[in-house]
Every structure is written in structure tokens, then in C-alpha cells.
Nucleic acid binder design. Sequence first.
DNA 1: TTCTTATATTCACTTACATCA
DNA 2: GATGATGTAAGTGAATATAAG
Length: 265
Amino acid sequence: MGLDDGCNTGLVLGLGFSPTSTSPSKSNNTTPKIMKHAVSLKFYEIEPSTLTLGLSGDHHQFGTSRKNNNIPEESSNGELYRQTSSPHSTSAVSSFSVKRERALSGEEIEIERVSEEDEDGSNARKKLRLTKEQSAFLEESFKQHSTLNPKQKQALARQLNLRARQVEVWFQNRRARTKLKQTEVDCELLKKCCETLTDENRRLQKELQQLKALKLAQPFYMHMPAATLTICPSCERLGGSDHGGATKAPKPHFYNPFNNPPAAC
DNA sequence: TTCTTATATTCACTTACATCA
DNA sequence: GATGATGTAAGTGAATATAAG
């Protein structure tokens, strides 16, 4: 395992962006940022309809049961709720706002007034647990693309019978978890590197002590030019000009753990 | 062309809630 | 049943990019 293993996280994929693909509307202006984060841009070549991930039924609706309270009122009828594009505009507390959103096709659509108050009138924040099926579906989607464009977000939300905002938040949190996990892996890696370097440092210190002791015990070496004192790389013993033909002093070797990672790394 | 403003999106951090031991 | 730990949905503010004026 190496630092490049982030490739296996599904976050860093190829750059297959096609500028002529899915409408580069105003709401789709995240492309440069996505590129900055090295996330696959092939995603934008995929039509939302291709997001169907092999579950039975073309437009399988998840969570039709509302036992888990994960179906918002607005989405249950499919008409009342429409997504507001800004993540902040659907706050559970202050969601009364009328905004205009440019649809991907370019025209504007009116955003409905949305109230997320409970039926009893309280607007207490409630935890909405996604069903296993919804989570699994989102997970599968995430494996393919770690970010969504608005169209795909909407398509996913429709398929899962969730709000687009919920899909968006799920992907956001999922990216955060992936990053955290990767950070932990990197941390472990660096710890191992540190241990290896500590061991190597210890060994070199010991070797230095031996050399110093040898130097004191054998005054003969004091008469030799320092450049002729070399360490045989095979037997790791001090050698002179007559040892294995090692007459030239070795080049200074500056160890760089990033260019020359030790075995543990 | 350059600057300003509005808007959209993402991330990092945080909070709140559900679940489990 | 109470409680603390953990996982995760969701809120918030900052940063950034882009389009339009």
C-alpha cells in the first residue's frame, strides 16, 4: 500500500470530461472545482436515465413506506416539493423562501414555498434515516461518481423518493467519510514511515559509534585520508583502499523517504 | 477588457438525533 | 430505563467559480 492508493477509493478517477456533454448551464458551473478535486468528469457524459442501477423496475421507488419517517411531505406527492438549488435554502427551520432556479434547459422554474414544519406545527429537527435500500442505491451511485450534477441529483432523488437536498447531503457526507478514512490510512502509513526512519536512524547512530570506537582503537586510520574510509555496502564493515576495490569514497547519500521510501512504506 | 455583483456549489465544521451496547 | 459511544442526516459559514451587467 502506498500514498497513491487513493486511487482505490473511487475518488480519483479519469478525466473524461466532454465539454459538449450535459448542458453547461449556470447551475452546472462546478466543473472547474470538480477538476480541482480530481473527481471523474466522465460523469457528465452520462444521462441521468443511466443512473438506474439494476434493481428491479425501471423507476423503482424506494421508501414507499413512511414508517421510517424518511419520506418528506413535499416529495411524497411528487409535485409539491421542488428542489432549491442552494443547500442553504432548504433549511428545516427557515425554508420559506421563493427562489427562481434556472433549470438545466435554461428556462427558469418557480421554486415552491416549502414548509418542513411537522404536522403539529413544530419545526424541531428530526432525524430521517434512509432505508437500507436507499443507502445501498446511493452507495452504488457513489462508487460510480462521487459528485452529482443537478440533473443527476434530481434523477436520483426521484428514483429514491427523496429530496434532491437529501441526496446532495448524503453525497457530501459520504465524500467527507471517504476523505476521513483516507486520512486515517495516510496517518497509519506515515506512522510506519516514522518508525522505519527511527530504526534506521538508530542503526546509523550505532554504526557511527562503532566507527568512532574503531578510530580510537586503531590509530592507523588516522593517517589515512578520510576519503578512503568507506563502508562496504555488503558486509557493512569499515574498509580502506584495499577492501574489495572500494577505493573511492561513496557519494554523499541524502536519504529522502518520499523518493526512496523504506520497505515499510 | 476589467470590475462588481449575484448565484451556485463544495468543503469543513458542527449540531442533533437514532441506535446500540 | 438510564447512559455513553457511535454513526449519520442536516445546518452553517467560508471559499471559490462563473455568468451577467
